[in-house]
Design a protein around this nucleic acid. Sequence first.
DNA 1: TATTGTTATACTCTATAACTATA
DNA 2: TATAGTTATAGAGTATAACAATA
Lengths: 148, 148
Amino acid sequence: MTRQHTDPLSRSALDALSSDLRLACMRIARRVRYESTSDVAPHQMSVLSRLEDAPRTLRELAAIENVSAPSMSRTTTGLVERGFVERTNDPSDGRQVILSLSADGKRALRDARRRRDLWMHVRINHLDADEQQTLARAAEILAKVAAE
Amino acid sequence: MTRQHTDPLSRSALDALSSDLRLACMRIARRVRYESTSDVAPHQMSVLSRLEDAPRTLRELAAIENVSAPSMSRTTTGLVERGFVERTNDPSDGRQVILSLSADGKRALRDARRRRDLWMHVRINHLDADEQQTLARAAEILAKVAAE
DNA sequence: TATTGTTATACTCTATAACTATA
DNA sequence: TATAGTTATAGAGTATAACAATA
């Protein structure tokens, strides 16, 4: 790919881009959430994905998710009852509880992601090759922006 | 700008792009929502932006927002009490109520958007010109995707 | 005494069912 | 009788305060 000189965006173009891009991302997020409904609620899904990285104690989960300990207690109780999360006692500290993802939990997580990705896949499939290439480059930049 | 031939994305590249782009949009949406907090709750903001286009009856708003009439009644009552929305009787049908955006409502909407756009603006400002140009093209495509 | 997690209680947003007023 | 909107009541999810068990 030949690299060409690109002029920086004007102040007003930057304003418009911020607004347009922000709106598009929020609309897409809303539609993905709305149209790929799951029997696992969003806050439950979020906990499952946190447990995917590593088992956690309740306090850790509450802190990561910016939620109170009682709320997280309720959320994880529900997930344990549904078999998506396993609760084991910490052998080294009797106060703590280790929460981890069960096989069913991993499956639920994978299925939910598949449904969400499908929504986007269908729409990207309808774009032409140029547009797809632009989005491929944009996806990297947006990932950087989101992680910042 | 010279237009070049671009190859279509492979099946696996499309899969990865769907997933990456979906995730990036959802993360950005979450961070914008989380970091540009407002005293107007999200469901209230949403109603304000609906009323920006045109005044609406309660049933219309409920249908547009996919919410029950009693829920919308509560939401709009709150907005009327805060002076963001005006409630007038429909002269031609005594059962109906016309809800419209007040000057304060318009201001609240504008301020909230400004805060949200600012989040994105700061981040886009840090990108180089090439990346900005790519996002400018991507924004159009994403808007199309979101509207589809 | 400090910390982990749960229970008690309350507030918000959601819903459905019952009600009032108007067509 | 049907429709627009409100009120009554209940179900999630959130929070803070009070509690039990453990360190």
